[in-house]
Design a protein around this nucleic acid. Structure first.
Lengths: 195, 195
DNA sequence: CGGTTCCTTGAGGATGATCAACGAGGGTGG
DNA sequence: CCACCCTCGTTGATCATCCTCAAGGAACCG
């Protein structure tokens, strides 16, 4: 949980529910609000001229998203969409900036958060460049895995979502997955993927 | 210029010169220092199993680099190397953290810096995924361009460097460039690229 | 039970990677 | 001044891989 909910409400934040598939903000839109997820999941992505989608990342309970443009007066580089039904608390940009100025410890938290994001992005782009479907897919699974070490867990993303995240095509993902299955890198039971 | 040099020296920072090609820190190394470039250029990159290189970015005069791991206690995700002869001022991690705690305005600057990095990384990975050599190369040129709008300027990177940054191979870059030349997207005079 | 959404398979084509040479320029030392 | 070396740029041929297009099949949900 990033900023305390009570604090946010004190400063005039408002909770809003978004239905699955609803757009929260769009690429090139002006950044006016701070968003923090109370419950649900948000996907950030870009779409190119030919409608091909690239997923920048997923955000879950207690996480905030879309903050960088607030700090540097830029427009949104990507679109944010509710991936499931999601409740989000919204605070105006000015108020967020004022909170950061008043609470240095919160500012520090945000610095750490941004640092962590850069760190992951560096790791991810390194992996994506590394041509090779299986490798990219594994890298994606690793970032999305809940229980780090330990037994196999169900992957809840569709093959299309995996494709969007890895920059591959659905068919390529499917073929790579079945190859990985026979090579025992993953397990597929009844179309469900375990890793 | 990020942190004032006098301030850094006051806190015990030391300037050091690195010769072209010299390694400043290595992937997976422990992060103990804050680095700020006084003069020169630094390249951050990863190398995969087969020796293929992926350039994460270049850093120039007045910029700092390799900070994220300092904030989150991780190891370096990439290697940093002097791209030309470069003078760098080094400060220990603890001292940096203490500076940030004592000067909230500096902490804020770092927050803005990290936000800007995330913003660029988002733009870059979007572009790289967008299969198409010409597109990737143009995206790289745009980020490295000094005078934003305006007339053509000389690209000072070798074709190998362009390849490393875009995740392509040298030959592919060369062929793409000459196609872009005939299509007038760029200009090549005497092997030199203008964009 | 009908309609979505997701998954699967095959055939064919496009494109970037790979391998192998060679060319061109710049700097250095004899 | 010239020969040599080293880095960078260039070209062609071939190969592997992923994309594209097309057509179904399976699972899930109201």
């Amino acid at each position: 949980m990033l900023i305390d909910l009570d604090l946010l409400y004190t400063w005039g934040a408002v909770a809003k529910e978004y239905k699955k598939g609803e757009i929260i903000f769009e690429e090139e839109g002006i950044a006016n609000f701070y968003y923090q997820i109370i419950d649900g999941c948000v996907k950030m992505f870009n779409t190119n001229d030919k409608g091909k989608e690239f997923t920048q990342g997923y955000f879950f309970n207690g996480q905030s998203f879309g903050e960088p443009p607030l700090f540097i007066d830029e427009r949104y580089p990507s679109t944010a969409m509710a991936f499931h039904d999601t409740t989000i608390i919204k605070l105006s940009k000015d108020k967020l900036i004022r909170i950061l100025d008043e609470y240095p410890s919160i500012q520090k938290q945000f610095l750490n958060l941004m640092a962590r994001r850069i760190y992951s992005k560096a790791k991810t782009s390194k992996d994506i460049i590394n041509q090779n479907p299986a490798f990219r897919i594994i890298a994606f699974f690793n970032t999305s895995k809940k229980n780090k070490e330990g037994e196999k867990e169900l992957i809840t993303y569709t093959r299309q979502e995996i494709a969007n995240f890895t920059g591959l095509r659905v068919e390529t993902v499917i073929r790579a997955l079945s190859r990985m299955n026979t090579e025992k890198k993953i397990e597929i039971k009844n179309h469900k993927i375990y890793y």
